[in-house]
């Protein structure tokens, strides 16, 4: 009970909390007692070498995986048992490291799917279409055009089929789809990976925009390899190494930590032996 009260007190400030999370795949330990607190309004980055367990961590937050041990709190409520679509309802959205768009659909339809929870018309009014559904669809279209397409500067491709688009634009569309949900918390799993310099700059700007603009004020969990961007954007940085937390602190403290440097040097080795 005492612990519960403690959570209530914190929940004014803390949006998401991971508490002592253990995740095993068979005998492989992907996360080894991880704890993390994400405060409202911040950009909280998660870094670590390949295979450190970052994506697993994101999948646990979003509900694709269930940890064997530990708790996930969202606004003070324990959400371990909630399925991903229920968590989306709470205001949690995400993008994926390996782009998970609906390839055969247009850009507009992909973003419309992000709008799913804001559309209320059910199967009956949907099958009649004229009236309620039509009004709602036009309203959704207006939202998408004015808030998403405008923000992400993708006017020219709105009717293009997604799998024909270049990689960088697909990443952008995926961000658009995640934003259409109007989330409070967004998980960005390596949004910059595979982008060229110009695209990285654009994407970094979008992330800052949605985090800072009054219209959005989205709290971000950012998984990223690009240290320059991470140190520039983040309020806090969480460092993960093969399932273990190394540290969680302000960017400048992270840069000064010798363990972090070692973990990243380790990664360089990994790269060189793999390729």
């Amino acid at each position: 009970m005492v612990e519960q009260n403690e959570h209530d007190k914190k929940s004014g400030d803390i949006l998401l909390e991971l508490e002592d999370i253990y995740m095993y795949f068979g005998k492989v330990c992907a996360l080894n007692g991880i704890s993390m607190k994400v405060r409202k309004g911040e950009i909280h980055s998660v870094i670590g070498p390949n295979g450190a367990g970052k994506t697993v961590m994101m999948n646990i937050i979003n509900g694709i995986y269930r940890p064997q041990k530990g708790s996930i709190y969202y606004k003070g409520e324990r959400i371990n048992k909630l399925k991903p679509h229920k968590r989306a309802r709470l205001g949690l959205s995400r993008t994926f490291q390996k782009i998970e768009l609906f390839g055969g659909m247009t850009v507009l339809d992909n973003i419309r799917l992000g709008r799913h929870l804001h559309l209320k018309s059910g199967i009956i009014s949907g099958s009649i279409y004229i009236g309620k559904t039509q009004r709602e669809e036009i309203e959704a279209r207006r939202f998408i055009e004015e808030e998403i397409i405008d923000l992400l500067e993708i006017e020219s491709i709105r009717k293009k089929t997604v799998h024909m688009l270049p990689y960088g634009l697909q990443k952008r569309v995926e961000l658009g789809r995640a934003l259409a949900l109007e989330p409070e918390l967004i998980i960005l799993d390596e949004p910059l990976a595979g982008l060229n310099l110009e695209e990285v700059e654009d994407m970094a700007r979008f992330i800052l925009d949605i985090n800072e603009e009054k219209r959005w004020k989205v709290t971000c969990i950012l998984v990223e390899h690009d240290m320059g961007v991470v140190m520039d954007l983040s309020d806090r940085v969480f460092v993960l190494n093969f399932g273990n937390m190394i540290m969680d602190g302000a960017p400048k403290d992270v840069q000064a930590n010798p363990d972090v440097v070692k973990a990243y040097l380790g990664e360089e080795d990994l790269y060189s032996t793999r390729r």
């Binding site: 399925k83 679509h85 989306a88 959205s93 994926f96 609906f102 659909m105």
Partner: peptide
């Protein structure tokens, strides 16, 4: 659209609240 999302990519669909 939810149906087509299930057909094309159910994990992403569920993450969008379907």
């Amino acid at each position: 659209r939810a149906w087509i999302a299930i057909r094309d990519n159910d994990i992403a669909g569920e993450a969008m609240g379907i």
